[in-house]
Design a protein around this nucleic acid. Sequence first.
DNA 1: AAATTCCGCAACCGCGTGCAC
DNA 2: AGTGCACGCGGTTGCGGAATT
Length: 348
Amino acid sequence: MMTATSILPPPPCLLYPSQPPPFIVLLTLSSSRSVEESKMMDGYKQKLRKGLWSPEEDEKLLKHITNYGHGCWSSVPRQAGLQRCGKSCRLRWINYLRPDLKRGTFSQEEEKLVIELHGVLGNKWSQIASQLPGRTDNEIKNLWNSSIKKKLLQRGIDPNTHKSLSRLLETHDSRTTMPNARSNTGNLDNLQLSVPTSNLSSDPLLWFNNGPYPSSELNVDSEFDCSTLASVLPSGGGSTLMVKQSGQTQVSGGQYWEGGSSSTSGTSVNSCLFESGIGLFPWADMSPEEEFIKWSEFLDSVEAGSTNAEGSGGHAKVETRDSGSCQQQTQFPYLSEDIYSNHFQTQL
DNA sequence: AAATTCCGCAACCGCGTGCAC
DNA sequence: AGTGCACGCGGTTGCGGAATT
């Protein structure tokens, strides 16, 4: 006789605690029911279990559905001899007992797909799950809330909109002007600094999050417009920031960021400027460089396959100039939600 | 080693939708 | 058209192990 536990992967210890908590709910039926109706129920008062499922319950449910299918979920618990509500049985089947479930940790590819699909579909977990065989909406939702969300935030990406946050600075003063997340136009005209630029470190790397950074200085997100960066850079002393945007070199010397040309869709010109090149944003256990390589492989492939030159993005690169020489450190396509949005809209 | 905090995950809850009557 | 029921979905909760203090 096949049991639930014999055909399933070893369950997390969470699932079957040594002392399953038999949280019993006393369901009192409405007094307006007729006696006949009441008799049709299994007793006038029915005890319904809640909480974690025991192996025995799993086995009963699995056996019942294997033999008869689930049919009407509300009748499943009675037919299967379970003291659960139909809803609970349905959930248990969908999220755990279904034989086609993959389980286990999500692969990089799966995570990537979830992010991309979320960018298109939003919190439509069931629709996202339908694109990932063997994964449930609950599983994906949990992954999103516990892991992916944080990773995106670390990278300065708003997990809700998939656009750059670029909220500028937090100061000690709660009166600080806090612009909302920048729209995806790269326009930071309305941003204002409430800290005198003279207070800023001459090292712009210290301004960005994932500290340690001087708390009195800027705490901004990874995506940050070059022009704004230039405008707030302390002048004089040591290196000078050179902003090269849309092919226009302005200054030379010091550190030098270059933004590739933007798409007509308004994708942020300077996305990723501070991601890969500087490497402040770790992704799981993988180094930013490693992660970026994988991430960019997908974007590259999409970009290459795109027949639409507009919106296909460009490249951003981080270079350092040292004593007149110009060394390119990194070159990478900037992250564009437009790319994968377009891609998946055509796929779906 | 004990206490506390953090975090992942399974399960519950409430709401919206579709359908039958 | 109104009502009730079943189902499915997304948000939230709470448990328990892991990590930290």
